[in-house]
Design a protein around this nucleic acid. Sequence first.
DNA 1: GGATAGCGTTTAATATATTAGACACCATGA
DNA 2: TCATGGTGTCTAATATATTAAACGCTATCC
Lengths: 182, 182
Amino acid sequence: MTLDVGAHLRAVRQMYGLSQRELAKRAGVTNGLISLIEQNRVSPSISSLKRVLDGVPMALADFFTLDLAQKPQVFFPKAELPNIGAGRVALHLVGGSLAKRSMAILHEFYAPGADTGEEMLTHDGEEGGVVVRGRIELSVGGETRSLSAGDGYYFRSNLPHRFRNVSREECEIVSASAPPTF
Amino acid sequence: MTLDVGAHLRAVRQMYGLSQRELAKRAGVTNGLISLIEQNRVSPSISSLKRVLDGVPMALADFFTLDLAQKPQVFFPKAELPNIGAGRVALHLVGGSLAKRSMAILHEFYAPGADTGEEMLTHDGEEGGVVVRGRIELSVGGETRSLSAGDGYYFRSNLPHRFRNVSREECEIVSASAPPTF
DNA sequence: GGATAGCGTTTAATATATTAGACACCATGA
DNA sequence: TCATGGTGTCTAATATATTAAACGCTATCC
């Protein structure tokens, strides 16, 4: 409804921790243009907006669908996991919806102090999971949360992300990636 | 990948049975502009493309997501319905994915010759269903198919659509609408 | 204090999108 | 045959997006 392209681009850019000049350099446009777009003083052409988003990188479709689904939920507290099971089987659905494509389910174990590396991970697809045992610190798109047993997560893998076990206990996670490459 | 805005706009426009001048009139732009856009001789500004799509009407997000999911599957033959059940329960999933929001499930009965009216239906949300008994003729976005018992359907409700029972038997359908308004 | 380097903003010049109106084409009907 | 009304396309004039380079600001460091 709003179509506030400017504010939206600014939010996306800051979410990825980029300055106007950094993004402009990656996208092959000038920093001034990004400034004007973010102030809604111009309405960028499709080709320009595409070039800008390629610098993030982010698809045009994602940019606009992000407008509709105001805040794509990333963290799912234990109490909010819906049960889609039937009869004597309880199925707690993480992510609010089934993925369109096949997924790769992972059972992960993080030793005390272990993490996924210094630099943030960024790749195509989506991923989500549940903490089974222990405690994990998860950073996604600039936001960091500490998750404990029963908590879940779900996000698009092109958001910079990182897992860190800052506790003294091993952490166990069941996760899923789609498509099954990670 | 392609980002063929021109060809895509043309397909959308023709899908709704509009001429360049008709669409231009509704959108408040000139027919020449639509011609140039469809030939990819200009890259429209976001504001212009939004005005054009408002004339359809179609949201920007839908326009671009339609680019990715090359052909949003509308018809799901019986043999292609995936079974997501477990154990002795067979759950054939229609639409390839669960809806993000709650749905309204409908059990519909069409008497011989009955239909949903002369003019096409158009409203927000999504809808899908399964033919339980009999035969129904379904038109969606200019495409018409005859569905019989076991076949399914799923489409965005802003595509013009219409149900017609052209047989001599009653037709029974189980359908779902999201959000639960129809 | 002065220099450097980062940030986002602004402005005049330039490139491009958009308009208004004409054009060519293909039907249908008097 | 000559209108009439419908397509989609093209071109000169105009509005707007985009660039390049400057500006003001806030840190940090010597």
